[in-house]
Design a protein around this nucleic acid. Structure first.
Lengths: 206, 206
DNA sequence: CGCTTTCGCTACGAGTCGTAGCGTAACTGC
DNA sequence: GCAGTTACGCTACGACTCGTAGCGAAAGCG
């Protein structure tokens, strides 16, 4: 995660168990305290490590929470459900299930808010979370093209722009529904959302 | 804003100028410091009021920032641009222009993050920001129905669900594009987004 | 002029921040 | 086994912010 040089084989190695304990303690503290009341000293106590150890590995609260939250999104998958509509519904419900967890809700939005004033943090979010999940869009689109549900895009640059648009629409709508409107993303909503999105994709040929 | 009893006519009245100065100072501090480094003592100094005055009017940082940010969104309008597609593009670009301002970016996301653990704050955001702007969706939809671009929805409950879905899709996509993907919402993006959304609405008959 | 409420100011204990210094623990290469 | 190197736990520190209390003065109302 923060090992820049893979060739550092002398001296006492960093405890991988401590890394895991710290990230887990961070998520636990996010659930109980939320972002603003979370303190690094408290996290260190929960994880059973010294506060100084925490500062040696992460620059601050922002970077720590990004890493703690990023792990949550790695469980996203895109099993083939037979149709593009079903695939969209499935990933929407999966994404919503993650956002149901309080550590994801408060943590994710808080670091996004902080990233508006911190270019390095924005880059960290992009590589740790955004780009890692954008693969699902590309994968779903390729599958739909195989099925003949969507035309195959030949221009790679247009394909990238289309994938970015779809990603922003899907993730944005789910996040907004969950956090801002504060209403549940249930199967009915997912079905109606998928219908609108799919209709738009078919109409515009993206 | 926080006057619960309109009948409080005895004693020295609260200075309305102080209210305006505090909210303006809050936005200024959000630009310079961001959410996490913003302190109420600093805001009070900028506004030229005592720190205690601030605490007498707002319960804390969250409530103050909600009020300071909510004012930014009141400038949203929906002039008739002749077609539903043009109306959507217009409101997307307006919304994006507001989110271009740093005080809106960091402030809005931060209070949303905090609201995940604070029911009262969530309600404050809903009444101060969300519901106030949802009117644009209803207005645009009615106009489109007049033009014959969309069928008129008879069931009021279905109409409300449709408006909520559209609102989440529009606002969510713009916010996600701006803050998470950190890429600009320009005219090209707005046009492509409006095309997909409009195609979806036409296909599903919402 | 009395009454009431707000205002600016000062001061306070409590809590957090990020860092420095120290002795010890863990692992590597000779 | 022994030096060399790095990570670790612990303690202590000044600086800062928090939210509140108490005071006298100011601003309206009857």
């Amino acid at each position: 995660m923060q090992r820049s040089t893979p060739a550092a084989r002398t001296g006492r190695p960093r405890s991988a168990a401590a890394d895991a304990a710290i990230l887990e303690a961070t998520r636990e503290a996010l659930v109980e305290l939320g972002w603003s009341k979370l303190t690094l000293g408290d996290v260190a106590t929960r994880a059973g490590v010294a506060k100084t150890t925490l500062y040696r590995r992460w620059a601050g609260k922002n970077e720590l929470v990004v890493d703690a939250v990023a792990e949550l999104f790695d469980e996203l998958e895109l099993p083939d459900r037979g149709s593009l509509a079903a695939d969209i519904e499935g990933v929407v419900l999966q994404f919503a299930a993650i956002l149901d967890r309080p550590e994801a809700r408060s943590g994710l939005m808080a670091v996004v808010a902080e990233s508006t004033r911190d270019e390095a943090l924005r880059e960290r979010i992009r590589t740790s979370i955004v780009d890692r999940q954008k693969r699902l869009v590309v994968q779903g689109r390729a599958r739909a093209a195989c099925r003949g549900e969507l035309p195959t895009e030949t221009d790679p640059e247009a394909a990238a722009r289309g994938a970015a648009l779809i990603f922003d629409m899907v993730a944005g709508a789910v996040v907004h529904r969950t956090l801002v409107s504060a209403e549940p993303v249930d199967e009915d909503w997912a079905r109606r959302f998928a219908a609108v999105l799919l209709g738009g994709l078919a109409a515009t040929g993206i």
